[in-house]
């Protein structure tokens, strides 16, 4: 099973990359689950034609009880992808990290993996690894690889470096390792050199190079990924290449 967590600075394109990668895996015939771990709960929206799924935390808050089946807290989107959002507390209140932990233990109790039998699980995680809750996706049994999304912007690279250090901090036999960087271009001057310099200094591989693309925005407006909207376009092809690469690595590992 491929289990990936995607981290990166706020607004850098984590959800966009995660959803496109999920769609790419699905179009290659894989059974995919995408779990948005962000109170904004917008991770899977472009797999669902723009209609969001009810986040787990919202479900619990509104009904004051735990769901009893996976169906109550998920939607099936493009390519059969099972979409789940942890959601979070009312902004400014509660604890978002705890929300992730609560959701994860709930999914475990509902035997999500045993029942859905996914080939690929993707976790789209909010911003930095700020507290224990945001490290939950890299724990044993969850993601075993991390992809860091960054552009050539200074603050994005800064965040990427922090995330890399945080994940390294946890490095022991059962935690996830950083697989590499997704360079999500922002048309910054000398972008490629800047990202490459960082990747080299951190000893990381650039797993994918995603161009700044008008297609992404065009299909996002229709609630779609580029994989769904225009699978032949350059951007879609880059995501397909990344998916194929990760599948090949996983198969080589087995």
């Amino acid at each position: 099973m491929i289990k990936l967590a995607i981290y990166g600075k706020g607004g850098i394109g984590k959800s966009t990359c995660t959803a496109n990668l999920a769609a790419a895996f699905a179009s290659l015939g894989k059974r995919v689950i995408q779990i948005g771990c962000d109170p904004k709960a917008d991770s899977t929206i472009n797999l669902l034609g723009g209609t969001p799924v009810t986040p787990v935390m919202d479900y619990m808050r509104d009904r004051d009880e735990e769901p009893t089946s996976i169906e109550e807290i998920s939607q099936v989107g493009y390519g059969g992808i099972l979409c789940i959002e942890t959601g979070g507390p009312t902004p400014g209140l509660g604890c978002a990290g705890r929300g992730i932990i609560t959701t994860f233990s709930l999914l475990e109790e509902l035997e999500l993996f045993e029942k859905f039998k996914p080939d690929v699980v993707l976790y789209d995680v909010l911003g930095d690894v700020v507290c224990g809750g945001f490290a939950a996706p890299i724990r044993e049994g969850y993601a075993d690889k991390v992809l860091i999304v960054t552009s050539g912007e200074k603050m994005a690279l800064y965040a990427a470096n922090n995330i890399n250090k945080a994940v390294k901090n946890f490095e022991d036999r059962s935690y996830a390792k950083v697989r590499g960087i997704i360079m999500n271009r922002r048309a910054v001057e000398n972008e490629e050199e800047k990202v490459r310099a960082f990747a080299e200094s951190a000893g990381l591989d650039i797993a994918a190079d995603i161009p700044r693309s008008a297609d992404i925005i065009k299909y996002e407006d229709m609630g779609k990924t580029v994989i769904e909207g225009d699978p032949e376009c350059e951007t879609a092809q880059r995501f397909m290449e990344l998916a194929k690469k990760l599948i090949a690595e996983d198969e080589a590992n087995d």
Binding site: C95, G97, R98, I100, I101, C131, G132, G133, A135, A136, R139, E140, F170, D172, S174, Y175
Partner: peptide, 12 residues
């Protein structure tokens, strides 16, 4: 409980 500590890891 709120901190999300991985106690299994601490125990190791």
């Amino acid at each position: 409980a709120l901190l999300g500590t991985d106690m299994e890891r601490v125990c190791r």
